[in-house]
Nucleic acid binder design. Structure first.
Lengths: 341, 341
DNA sequence: TATGTAAATGCAATCGTTTTCAAACGGAAA
DNA sequence: TTTCCGTTTGAAAACGATTGCATTTACATA
């Protein structure tokens, strides 16, 4: 392959000046005589010179790249987060290196290691469902690697975090169902040990308690993935119970839609016989019939805020104390839960 | 920030050997005495040494990174493509740098330029709807930059391409509607000048011709984005025509779903009064009611094949001739078009 | 003791930049 | 002519790694 880059050396040789002069001229350094400068800049343009990024990174010990560690790209929430990240990063001249682990802990670990070998200046991370040990992250924190967790976080690591108010969101969603007249409300959630699910469940319980409703443990179900098929599966379980729910809080939109689909198949009317609310505000929920009530998870905002935080940490020499930013979610009520009074 | 990387220099100093020896020992070079080697490797582990990626890139003039240029990440098709890309790249020790242009030509151009300054070894690109001039890509080809186009391509650039058989897919979709008994079929497409839309339209026309059906130009509509709202909008137009269609080929699933939604609202039965088929096989189509017939666009395969091709080009010194790989799509028929006989 | 040889190690160049420090230059003043 | 000073320029070190070549060892052989 003959794709040789034009370097400042080539320019220097061509013009019979030193590489230092070329470097300075291109940086518009006032030390260089106007005449020389112009000649150099002109030739650089002609030769289509572009500074070599790798050399710059090495010299300046900065890659102007941030790493993003996520479980999967094929996910509307992460796609939104990515957009937020890119908008901020791009504005400040940073690139984003995305590493998805496909929910594999091993791959998450390997990706992180690889990114940190001088490939990126900092890391944004959302841990996978599979991740149970966090030593590697702790080590990064010790090494002072700029690191911001978002969405799925862990209490065991002291670093910057950007999360939503999962507990309160769970409370809101449940309270909404109660206000619509639901008396027997089920919780259909993703993996039990994922902390966001625990929080949402706490919120759910708080709401039941506040309104003096029963807490039937049979009505609390957990899956492993949180997708559509699981929604079908778990709701089947739900509908076979003696005490049938008249409201469901699903911790993902896909679970919620799965529940509705099954409910409709079982001849139940949504929302009159059973009201359903999901979580995340995916596009599909708006289009589905009946349109799905949900909690807006603010992916774009999370991405933006996490990135701002990370870049601040990268660009500052001072010791910043760790911060956890909690983003307010909002309730979006649609046909799947709105009962006519 | 005190995050100093451990380098081979540190190790060398600590052990009182030269950096060359350290470098060799870590590469398991047999020239180094077993004893020394072990000591070095042990210390490297202890000090948590990781080779600096940037230095390696510079030295070996290879970044082991490929760039991905796409209009948007928030898109199920691209998400699938990305998964395909990552699976292949990861296996061969490559990372992926994603740059999304948000459908802006200017940003596409800037991103490409930036990636190519020694940041990546090659480029995968899908042009935006906005892109009308391709000179920059031509220049990359001239510079022998390894470059593979996928999905949205252009004939004007001679480089590797991976596409689906849009024409044939358009034909299949239309033929399917005809076989279901449709006589008056409409075409609802995205941007008119995007070559994939032109191809799909050609396929549509071929099918009509083959079966001797009318080609009413009023029944051929083009939008600008291809999303759900546009589906609503265009179908409104469609339903106000004198000659109402009894079948619709939409070039995206979202358009198709928009059409169905409107049809239902207008009291039409799908598929009996009007059969609809989309394009892409997004998850939503399977869940929507009625489930949407569609063409599987093979995003994952496209990603895999494009990446394999790119890596081959990167890793070989020989002159490879340019190749266009056409991937076969498949028809997925579901309730939105399947009429009971 | 001198020499040859193989094994082990080190030096230095290199990748493409930036930047510090020193040097060259030209002209003005002494 | 020297000295000095401001303006330009260049040499070289550095970033962290690899690698061709030279050198140093240790030991066997002449």
């Amino acid at each position: 392959m003959n794709r040789e880059q034009v370097t400042i050396k080539h320019i220097a040789k061509e013009l019979g000046v030193s590489i230092s002069t070329v470097s300075r001229a291109l940086a518009n350094n006032p030390l260089v005589k106007q005449e020389t400068k112009e000649a150099i800049q002109k030739l650089a343009k002609e030769m289509n010179y572009h500074p070599n990024f790798t050399a710059l990174s090495l010299r300046q010990r900065k890659t102007r790249t941030i790493g993003l560690l996520i479980p999967q790209v094929v996910h509307e929430f992460f796609a939104q987060v990515i957009r937020g990240i890119e908008d901020v990063a791009y504005n400040q001249g940073y690139n984003v290196l995305i590493s998805s682990s496909n929910e594999s802990f091993e791959r998450e670990f390997k990706n992180a290691e690889e990114l940190l070998n001088g490939r990126v200046d900092g890391l944004l991370a959302c841990i996978t469902k599979e991740t149970k040990t966090f030593e590697h992250f702790q080590e990064y924190v010790n090494r002072q690697v700029p690191l911001v967790f978002f969405d799925c976080v862990t209490d065991t690591i002291d670093t910057d975090k950007v999360v939503i108010d999962d507990l309160h969101a769970g409370f809101m969603a449940t309270e909404h169902l109660i206000q619509q007249g639901c008396k027997t409300i089920a919780f259909v959630g993703g993996p039990k040990d994922l902390n966001i699910n625990q929080e949402r469940l706490l919120g759910f319980r708080d709401a039941l308690k506040k309104y003096g409703l029963d807490q039937n443990p049979e009505l609390i179900l957990h899956g492993t993935s949180g997708n559509f098929d699981e929604g079908l599966e778990l709701s089947r379980e739900l509908f076979s119970l003696e005490q049938k729910p008249d409201g469901v809080f699903a911790t993902t939109d896909m679970l919620g839609i799965g529940v509705i689909k099954n409910a409709k198949a079982a001849g139940l009317r949504v929302p009159d016989d059973i009201a359903v609310i999901g979580f995340s505000n995916w596009e599909i929920g708006e289009i589905f019939e009946p349109a799905l009530s949900t909690i807006d998870q603010k992916g774009y905002d999370i991405g933006k805020i996490a990135t701002s935080r990370l870049l601040k940490r990268i660009d500052t020499d001072q010791e910043l104390s760790m911060m956890t930013e909690v983003i307010k979610t909002t309730l979006i009520s649609r046909a799947s839960s709105l009962r006519k009074k």
